[in-house]
Simulated assay, not measured.
Amino acid sequence: MSGQEKINYIELPASDLKAIKQFYSQVFGWVFADYGPDYVAFANSGLDGGFYRSSKCSVTADGAGLVVLYSKDLLQTQTNIEAAGGVIVKPAFNFPGGRRFHFADPHGNELAVWSEQ
């Protein structure tokens, strides 16, 4: 359900939409709907969004916002990410409230995963 003036949708770049769909469906169970050759929407992710065709990446070193996902089992999620071709770019570290790590998806977009563990 949409809320007035609340974050409603997020879009990220990806050059290979087929590969990005494979990665996120395999690791996180996201589902996709294609909208032409240059855009794919995702759902079942906590917040709906999409990937648009682009050679650029979303990385915090370039000033991009950081999408942070939640996991009940941080180690298992990290294992699943690596098995699907993701790369850990910042190993797990403690922060007030839990632990998290950052990863790059097959396109190079940086996201993070956190847990209370």
Rank of each mutant, 00 (worst) to 15 (best):
N8E: 10
T77K: 10
N94E: 13
S25F: 03
H102L: 05
S55K: 15
Q22E: 06
G98V: 08
K72Y: 13
V89L: 07
F95L: 08
Q22D: 02
D16M: 06
S25Q: 05
E116D: 07
L17C: 14
K6V: 11
A64L: 09
V68Y: 11
G50V: 02
L47Y: 00
Q26I: 14
F23Q: 09
G29S: 09
V89I: 15
Q117V: 03
Y9T: 05
D73H: 02
S71C: 05
N44S: 10
Y39A: 11
E116F: 01
A83M: 07
Q4Y: 09
Y35R: 13
A41P: 00
V89H: 03
I20F: 04
Y52D: 07
Y24Q: 08
D73M: 00
H107N: 13
F32W: 04
Q78R: 15
G98P: 02
F103I: 04
W114F: 11
A43Q: 03
V89G: 06
P37L: 14
I7Y: 02
I81E: 05
H102A: 11
V31F: 04
A41S: 07
P37H: 15
G97I: 08
D34L: 02
E116W: 01
N8H: 07
I10V: 10
D34N: 09
S58I: 10
D105L: 08
H107V: 13
A104Y: 13
S55R: 12
V87Q: 13
V40R: 10
T79L: 13
Q78P: 01
V27G: 03
N44V: 06
S2W: 14
Q22N: 04
K72P: 00
V113I: 04
Y52H: 15
G50E: 00
N109V: 13
K6I: 07
Q78T: 10
G63S: 08
F103T: 05
F101S: 07
P91A: 14
R53G: 06
G46M: 03
S71G: 04
G3Y: 05
H107M: 11
A112I: 09
Y39L: 15
Y24L: 10
G46A: 05
G85P: 02
Y52P: 09
Y70P: 01
D48F: 00
F101H: 06
V40N: 05
S58D: 06
Y39E: 10
G98S: 05
P13Q: 14
V113C: 04
Q26S: 15
